[in-house]
Design a protein around this nucleic acid. Sequence first.
DNA 1: TCAGTAGCTATACAAATTGTCCACCCAAAC
DNA 2: GTTTGGGTGGACAATTTGTATAGCTACTGA
Lengths: 159, 159
Amino acid sequence: MTIDRLDARLISLLTEEPKLGVLECSRRLGVARGTVQARLDRLAERGVITGFGPDIAPAALGYDVTAFVTLQIRQVSGHDPVADQLAEIPEVLEVHTITGGDDMHCRVVARSNADLQRVIDLIVDVRGVVRTSSVIALDTPVPYRILPLVNDVPHRGNR
Amino acid sequence: MTIDRLDARLISLLTEEPKLGVLECSRRLGVARGTVQARLDRLAERGVITGFGPDIAPAALGYDVTAFVTLQIRQVSGHDPVADQLAEIPEVLEVHTITGGDDMHCRVVARSNADLQRVIDLIVDVRGVVRTSSVIALDTPVPYRILPLVNDVPHRGNR
DNA sequence: TCAGTAGCTATACAAATTGTCCACCCAAAC
DNA sequence: GTTTGGGTGGACAATTTGTATAGCTACTGA
């Protein structure tokens, strides 16, 4: 399952100028409108494009601190109940189960370092969590991006 | 800097049904079209909404493996040159500098576990990188989300 | 080789949305 | 008391969308 050059160009275009409509895209890409429409439909259908939601910057909402928290959980309790509890905490933006000495990895945000303490306490209080370890993100030299990956597509004309 | 209830409702609405236009949003929210338009402009201006780019699932592109790589770098080299090099690797989706024993934290993807080895080798080869440590994300019980955070806004009518 | 299929182009049309105006109103701030 | 920021409601032309149509080409499998 992969995408072709035209898909990649379309995704790039939309990533860089999200307000473009289908018609404008077709003009920029030099293809028919129906093609763009069909491509978008197919990309969404295949699950490549999962949505067009607005990108929100937590920092702009006052959540200036980002941290990564890894946790060990009690073996008997299992991951799911813990994950469910974590999901109840708004400041927990993302949770993964992981390999290695720890069991889970979370991205969390907070309004300040002091506020981070509060959030970590919430996490520690989750039933089944044995131990946590946190690091604070000081800077983000490479913010989340997928374009380089998308553009890593063989150039064979448009197809 | 914060958002009010109407902003939150608007963001929620757009997150859940991204294809809605301004007009439809105004209908759903029960406010005038101009209001929605103004709110969106302001949210974008204030940096709360940073974009409307398509959300791409790396897994749908064949990058089934996600991993977190933490690195130690040579003190003398500084973070920036290392980050610049990391940014050249398409599979590196995100880089943060962090507190604690390690210096940087990256999210990377790969086509398979074997392919992950290749990507890690690319990272190790970056000048200034001394040591890396990786964990693989096995599952993602809570995928990245910001809605709970956005909805964590006092209910005081619409404002 | 031939039929079938998938994907792109081109075109058409009505319906809906957008981008901008404007005038007016209200509440909070000065 | 008056400025000011935000919201309302309405109006307009221009553009875009949704949806169909038909024709063309390239590839696939029998």
